[in-house]
Nucleic acid binder design. Structure first.
Lengths: 328, 328
DNA sequence: TTGAAAGCGCTAACAG
DNA sequence: CTGTTAGCGCTTTCAA
């Protein structure tokens, strides 16, 4: 079966291709009669517009690229899935680029996306140290940053959970449940992790504790170094793990070392990954609102594409404390 | 900064666009001198080929669509990520379509992919009851099925883990560790799950046990129905859960009901999801070789695109038993 | 309200 | 070995 082109449709309708195009795009004038006719013929023939040809003319591709560090991370997977879903309802298709946190790969993907003339790029990350920079050599492609600070805020929209507030809530809850001496546990520090640490510090301040790095912050390395820390700081009664991965590692160590959770030591995490609800005891944690983040990102992207400039905007999405079993 | 086109390059080189095209595609003849010249100018100008225009002529888009039921499922995420990575090294970009196990969505995506003139489609799934069917109305787009049986095997390549053998290994291991009366636990049955059940049955047969559905197969619904089953069948000493999700649910129920795992009841799962290594006790399970599956899929896809026909091929990828703590 | 025609950037057949 | 040219399917002036 041959593919119908706009020419065929024009011929079948006894009009010019220009008119068909106008009807399809609902742009320009035409009589109601021709409109009906054209639409009918399109229906009958099953004509499908050729996006390639259209893009060649218009430079609009109806595709968006997403840069994501690791699609296997459940938080990212969730976010990407929701963004993709939203974009699809708006007739955009999505090219997902798994950068593996590798700068070379990221660059290669960026080149590819530029080459594909995507209409926009959404950059997701929470794991980079450096800000995101993207300077297209040619056309200016709009981009949106989620959870990764752009090098220049004025060029883009920045969306992220309110990590600071989330961490503050988490730590406050620890205090509320009787904690006297909480410690924040980290591994690698990125911009969002930094906000979480800041939230933790703020809570300490609010509870008249002076933050001392050696006393209130632990860089997690191994079970033995963790054990050593606890030995040196026996008053430690609660841990705010800066993400659920760390929290679950702590849970494992605590069990091995014979500590009771939450009776002796309370633990709270961040992210609410699926496993948080599976470990024993189930992890109290901070949930990010991926739906809201996705919606904001897509809306901003649509605005950016339509030049309804929001450049320089920042959105902070509220988080939610999920209380489970690792706190009293 | 203006975008260079092949015309500009041609002009700068004092050759025709045809020659530039030939050099770019390394196809046809040209002197070493012109080749150098053209390449130099391309380098200097930063000229990038316009894929859209090229596609319009050649009908080759260098994009592949992937249909996946749920990207949040770690097994699928892993698979998709690996496929995408492999395709990228071959200069293909990937459009990931999350069908949500929704037939309407699947159809909509299929239309979109057809519309985008993708060069091929990879269909992933383990959760559909019906076979996959895709009949493009226009050009024939090759497709590959992973873990989801196509309606017509002759039209495609079918790749899947050897679920049968994996289940056989799992159950045999249970017997090896002293099981006398294993039961297979299922929820929904798909084609791959069916193979797993068959493997279980085969193992029973090999150990001179006659499979009785009421005795050796449990359709998991709730903790109470599970408890009832155990009461009715007190000799049950081992469970083969048809996937890790079910296995972990069982682990939870067993703990609640006061059974010791693995001392009283052994458990083995299937898939080796990340959480399997986090629960207590850690889950013994069957690991699928996603790397191999991805490689096979991409290779087959390349063959299909190049008409090196392998249609009708089936690949069964071996699995691996991962021994952890839920077996003796 | 409609049509003719140019042209987006590229490839490929044909001619030389 | 290289150039000329037609045309992929569409949009968009310009003119009617």
């Amino acid at each position: 079966m041959k593919q119908y082109s706009i020419k065929d449709i024009a011929k079948l309708c006894n009009v010019s291709t220009a008119t068909v195009s106008r009807v399809i795009n609902n742009n320009g004038r035409f009589s109601e009669k021709t409109r009906q006719k054209v639409l009918d013929v399109i229906e009958q023939t099953g004509y499908k517009i050729d996006n390639n040809a259209r893009s060649l003319r218009t430079n609009i591709t109806f595709t968006i690229g997403i840069l994501v560090p690791d699609i296997k991370n459940p938080f990212f997977a969730d976010l990407v899935q929701k963004i993709e879903e939203l974009l699809f309802t708006k007739n955009y298709s999505t090219i997902i680029c798994n950068t593996d946190k590798n700068e070379q790969k990221e660059k290669a993907y960026l080149r590819m996306l530029e080459n594909k003339k995507v209409d926009g790029i959404i950059v997701i990350s929470g794991s980079y140290q450096h800000g995101f920079k993207f300077q297209s050599s040619l056309k200016e492609i709009p981009y949106i940053c989620i959870d990764r600070e752009p090098e220049n805020f004025h060029n883009t929209v920045f969306i992220s959970s309110n990590h600071y507030q989330g961490a503050l809530d988490a730590t406050n809850y620890l205090f509320q449940k009787g904690a006297k001496s909480p410690v924040v546990v980290v591994k690698k520090v990125s911009s969002s992790i930094k906000s979480r640490i800041d939230g933790f510090k703020e809570s300490l301040k609010n509870h008249s504790l002076k933050f001392a790095k050696s006393r209130h912050e632990l860089k997690l390395q191994s079970q033995s170094s963790f054990a050593k820390f606890l030995q040196k700081n026996p008053s430690t009664d609660s841990l705010f793990a800066v993400d659920d991965g760390i929290a679950m590692e702590l849970l494992k160590y605590l069990k091995n070392l014979g500590y009771q959770v939450p009776q002796q030591i309370q633990v709270v995490g961040f992210d609410d990954v699926p496993a948080a609800n599976i470990v024993t005891p189930k992890l109290t944690t901070i949930q990010q609102n991926t739906r809201k983040i996705a919606q904001t990102a897509v809306t901003s992207m649509m605005h950016a594409i339509n030049k309804q400039n929001e450049k320089g905007s920042q959105f902070l999405i509220p988080t939610k404390l999920i209380i489970r079993e690792t706190t009293k």
